[in-house]
Design a protein around this nucleic acid. Structure first.
Lengths: 190, 190
DNA sequence: GTCTATAGGCAGATAGAC
DNA sequence: GTCTATCTGCCTATAGAC
């Protein structure tokens, strides 16, 4: 039942990146929490770059799997978008930022291999949103001005930013207010 | 004409925080760029916390002054909001994040004195937006569902997030798309 | 797989000369 | 105000024993 060490390392490292940033934690921090020595972590992830890459890869895999579940759960755009919001809201509830939101901010201080994967994550999100927005408009479930791409940009930016602002102000409700205000406009079909 | 050292330090430090994050640079980095030794920086800013605090204080002062200029420049809400967007767009053009967007993300790894001031910055932004949104709606220049506070949350979150996403994807146009899409909805009075 | 030990470098910070 | 010199401690990373 207990995860193997590599998984434990990833779990702790992910939380540390999400709360402190890529440059805000060390192998010793992780080791200390798990109860091993930092040298042991190098056995699983030789360099911090390796760890960062593994972190984003796993995050994207999990996220992608959640997105597929959302599509399977309902074929109505408003429900799908609400579920999309819930993914981020869940992260915020754990007092964390989106992993890629944090890493995206720190872009210039990241190894190329990591920032490259952060890019890939955001592209996945936008592609998924564009599809949902297109279908929803076609089915007349939602309405919006402009291109699906523009609205997807807007939506993703809003959620990533709302997590930052809500955390900075110690007020998770600000995330809800921002997300709901956006959803309300999409659903206001006249 | 040349700025005194303390100002040079703040200029370089600000850019480094905006691009690499609070934990992504050192006194040596700043010193190297200015052409002095890192010990000299401690004369102006004894601790990194002092530097961080000075950074955010100056940033907020400058920002506040820009906000006042915007109010003086026009009394029409759409124009004011456009100018507000332009402040962030200008930062992005310099390939930087909002200083407080970056620091807000890194909250858990910051000295309390710094994160406290980041909070103050966001509150200033929201208060200004709420006023502009209220007046604009009263004057029937803009329209929106829900409270001014909710729309302000949404707006600020959108801009902060759009900077992160646009930078992560190396595509500043994504910022424009997201910001314009939002503005268009506000201005679509029917 | 995890340990001890250690390398080599960089971090923030201070003392004291100039 | 800036310098040199230095401290202490932490960083990532490796070697080799167990």
């Amino acid at each position: 039942m207990s995860a193997i060490t590599a998984d434990k390392v990833l779990d702790v490292a992910q939380r540390l990146v999400q709360t402190r940033g890529y440059n805000g934690f060390s192998y010793r921090d992780i080791a200390g929490e798990i109860g091993i020595k930092s040298a042991s972590i190098h056995y699983h992830f030789p360099s911090k770059t390796d760890l960062g890459v593994a972190l984003v890869d796993r995050y994207q895999d999990n996220f992608d799997s959640e997105l597929q579940k959302i599509l399977a759960r309902s074929d109505e755009a408003p429900k799908r978008l609400k579920d999309f919001i819930a993914l981020f809201r869940q992260t915020l509830k754990g007092d964390r930022l989106c992993l890629c939101g944090m890493l995206g901010a720190e872009r210039d201080s990241l190894p190329e291999a990591v920032s490259e994967r952060v890019r890939s994550f955001f592209m996945l999100c936008e592609a998924w949103l564009v599809e949902v927005l297109k279908q929803g408009r076609k089915a007349r479930e939602i309405a919006y001005l402009g291109s699906p791409q523009a609205v997807a940009d807007q939506f993703l930016s809003l959620l990533e930013g709302a997590m930052v602002v809500a955390r900075a102000l110690n007020d998770p409700e600000r995330f809800d207010r921002a997300a709901n205000a956006f959803l309300r406009v999409l659903k206001s079909i006249d």
